[in-house]
Amino acid sequence: MKVKVMALQPYETFGDMYREIPFSFFDCEGWTMEEMLEVTYAIYTKEQERQWGR
Rank of each mutant, 00 (worst) to 15 (best):
R54M: 06
D16K: 13
E49F: 08
V39E: 14
E12G: 07
T13H: 08
K46V: 13
W52C: 14
Q51C: 09
I21G: 05
S24G: 09
T45W: 09
K4E: 12
Q48W: 11
E38I: 14
M33I: 08
F23S: 00
K4H: 14
T32K: 13
V5G: 03
P22A: 11
E29F: 02
T45L: 15
M1R: 08
E47C: 08
A7T: 10
D16F: 02
D27R: 12
K2E: 15
M33E: 13
K4T: 15
L37Y: 02
S24W: 03
P22V: 02
R19D: 07
A42L: 06
T13A: 06
E20G: 08
T32E: 04
I43R: 14
M17V: 03
V3Y: 09
L37M: 11
M17R: 10
I43K: 14
L8Q: 07
V39N: 12
E12F: 06
D16T: 02
G53Y: 01
E35Y: 04
M33F: 09
Q9M: 10
G30F: 08
W52I: 04
F25W: 04
E49V: 06
R54I: 07
Y44A: 06
K2T: 13
C28I: 00
F23Y: 12
P22T: 04
E29G: 08
Q48N: 11
A7Y: 07
E38R: 15
L37E: 01
R50Y: 02
K4P: 00
Y41D: 07
F26L: 07
Q9V: 13
T32M: 05
E29N: 06
K2H: 12
Y18R: 02
F25M: 03
A42Y: 05
C28F: 05
F25K: 03
E49S: 13
T40W: 01
F23A: 01
M36E: 00
P10M: 04
T40K: 07
E38W: 03
V5Y: 06
D27P: 00
R50L: 07
L8W: 10
C28W: 01
Q48V: 02
E35C: 03
T40M: 11
M6I: 09
L37D: 00
M36D: 00
Q9G: 07
F14D: 01
G53C: 15
Y44M: 11
L8K: 10
I21L: 10
E35I: 06
Y11S: 02
T13Q: 04
T13L: 04
D16A: 13
K4L: 15
W52F: 13
E34G: 01
F23K: 01
L8R: 10
E29P: 00
P10N: 06
E12D: 14
Y41I: 14
E20Y: 00
E49I: 03
L8M: 09
P22W: 04
L8T: 13
L37I: 05
V3R: 11
Y44G: 03
M36T: 01
G53L: 10
F26Q: 00
R54Y: 12
W31E: 01
F25E: 13
Q9S: 11
M33Q: 05
Y18Q: 01
V39A: 07
T45Y: 14
R19T: 02
E38P: 00
I43L: 09
M6K: 10
I21A: 07
K4I: 11
A42G: 13
E29T: 04
K4M: 10
M33D: 13
Y41T: 08
L37T: 02
E12R: 15
G15D: 06
W31D: 00
E49K: 08
C28Q: 05
R54H: 08
A7N: 11
M17K: 12
P22L: 08
